[in-house]
Design a protein around this nucleic acid. Structure first.
Lengths: 349, 349
DNA sequence: TTGAAAGCGGTACCAG
DNA sequence: CTGGTACCGCTTTCAA
């Protein structure tokens, strides 16, 4: 037994022949512009049957050349997806994107070919934008090259970025975890437990998500009239032994940490000095706590799955109405109760 | 600042006009097949200059259309990918596929549209039809509808299946973990430790991968002149208490199990009867041991990542040469040393 | 209503 | 060597 011609996908003309109509009729049935080209139900049925029998699928490149929709949504990560998916980094985003894409009838193209060969991936290679194959794309990850984002935007390519990215001269449409509000909420919670003297632990990173946390934190401190004399609050990153000593000596009863990593480090340092969490010092973390650490941190949740879904919806909106302004979207981050916040205690009775 | 309108990119004809040559000359300069179309250095320079001046970049869709390739490789998993990836089932396969796709300049299309769906648009999306979107596809997963595979093959669609799948009347090109050889190797190893009387634990599954193990096992038993009177060897699945008793009473010193699950069950049963592994009975497992079980089984490794990569390479070969026979590929499974094989001991001194 | 035909941007074959 | 030209698969007028 021999297969048919190898690798020859059926074309519209094949469908047309089988259905006994012209090629353009097939095209009109598919494009489904009911108002523009009304097609008798009978013809329509025959075409659909032929399409199904042949397993016809429109050629994305040809369509693209003609500037119509492919029903393809691109996903561009700035690093390889799967190695990281395992670490849960891209995972839930992708899950949400996949779910929503399926629900809305889009297929997903994972753009992998744009690699520069060094593990980093770029959108433009040899000056061409591979993303063009898809109707629009969702971008995520650590974009090293802001200029690419700017160019993508300037080219008018429809895309949304997961996570806030600021590029001068461009308005990148983003779907953004609302770290600022969540941080306000977390400080509110601590203040509600009677805390007035705070310390802030800062990661040595300057990306937007951290800026948002810092912004929110400063807001809350000012709004509530709190005290914070920590280096982190002043803009110094990391956590020194000296400062841990200082916390132990000082009036601080609450610490807000940008990361589980720093919170852990603090926890160890305090434990070594006989200071307990949360009995003596309350601690909250401004990122999702994946568990498996020494404490169950009061923290925030990044609704990754929802964000993935929302990104797809946002992209489809942009596809439906290309002239729409490219606005960003904030997605609330729920505050997750842990076991590291307790009532403020008089530190030096 | 406003994004520019799409579709204003310079074309080859613009370049040609500026350089004062024909469009096809431009094409030849770009394609750069120096042997096929030698172009005078002077012309070449002018074209290159014009390209640079206009900022011309080739349109990938047009290229793909002409070359009858979309540089897209499909991945069909018969189930949603990401929920399962988490369980490590598809994961390393996908990782390998992604890696290799990136290296070879292909993008990935994830086909997940197995969904129900009775809407009109659904017609174009039912099942495997969508695969035609990609130049070719890698298929993996368990609940394979054999009829679909047959049709896909009959249609001449280029694809490879990860794992052996036999379909009457079709020659499915597969990338196959070589369970048969690995099983031979494992029995060799046991025999090398002096074992002569074997038992076989059989899973209640009839898919090709199990057939391969059974085939390999039978080969080894016959080749080495071993003894096996176990129900599993005769074709009965599962493990009964009676048979554990029988092993304890009998001459068997080596057990080969199709799964960690059955090996575990045996281990418990033997322990309850005061029989130790591997001191009294050696055990080997014919699947990958993910760890976390009561013993570190002597087992085999399924080189998932390598298989994913090989599948992509195999597919590209088929794309490059469509008339090539659709042969399958065996990938060796390394034997992983554990702590459950020891020298055969005189059972009843 | 429907089919013929003109491209979209490139590639590649084929006479000059 | 080179330019002319026939497609690639699809959308979209434009007549019939």
């Amino acid at each position: 037994m021999t297969p048919k011609r190898r690798g020859q996908a059926p074309r519209q003309s094949d469908v047309a022949r089988l259905a006994g109509v012209s090629q353009s009729a097939v095209s009109r049935v598919i494009s489904g512009d009911v108002d523009t080209a009304r097609i008798p139900e009978e013809t329509r049925r025959r075409v659909l049957a032929a399409i199904k029998e042949l397993g016809y699928v429109p050629n994305p490149s040809a369509r693209n050349l003609r500037n119509k929709r492919n029903m393809l949504i691109g996903v561009h990560t700035f690093e390889a997806v799967f190695p990281h998916a395992r670490d849960n980094f891209y995972f839930d985003f992708l899950l949400g994107i996949e779910e929503r894409a399926e629900e809305t009838g889009f297929d997903l193209v994972l753009f992998t070919s744009t690699g520069a060969g060094d593990g980093r991936r770029r959108v433009y290679r040899d000056g061409t934008n591979r993303l063009n194959l898809a109707d629009g794309s969702v971008l995520l990850g650590v974009s090293t090259d802001r200029a690419e984002l700017a160019r993508l935007w300037a080219d008018g390519y429809p895309f949304v970025h997961i996570g806030r990215r600021e590029v001068p001269g461009a308005e990148i449409p983003c779907v953004i975890p609302d770290y600022r509000s969540a941080t306000n909420g977390i400080v509110d919670k601590l203040a509600g437990h009677g805390h007035r003297h705070f310390a802030y632990l800062r990661e040595p990173k300057e990306m937007e998500p951290y800026a948002d946390r810092r912004h929110g934190y400063r807001e809350a401190v000012e709004r509530l009239g709190l005290t914070d004399r920590s280096p982190g609050f002043r803009g110094e990153s990391e956590l020194t032994d000296d400062w841990i000593d200082e916390i132990v000596r000082g009036e601080e009863t609450a610490v807000v940490s940008e990361s589980v990593r720093l919170a852990e480090q603090l926890f160890q340092g305090l434990a070594a000095r006989g200071v307990r969490v949360p009995e003596d010092v309350s601690v909250a973390v401004l990122e999702a706590d994946w568990g498996g650490t020494s404490a169950q941190w009061d923290s925030l949740e990044i609704p990754r799955l929802a964000i993935g879904r929302i990104a797809v919806d946002r992209l489809i909106e942009m596809l439906d109405d290309p002239d729409q302004p490219a606005t960003s979207l904030l997605v609330p981050c729920p505050i997750v109760p842990g076991t590291t916040i307790a009532a403020a205690r008089q530190r030096r009775p």
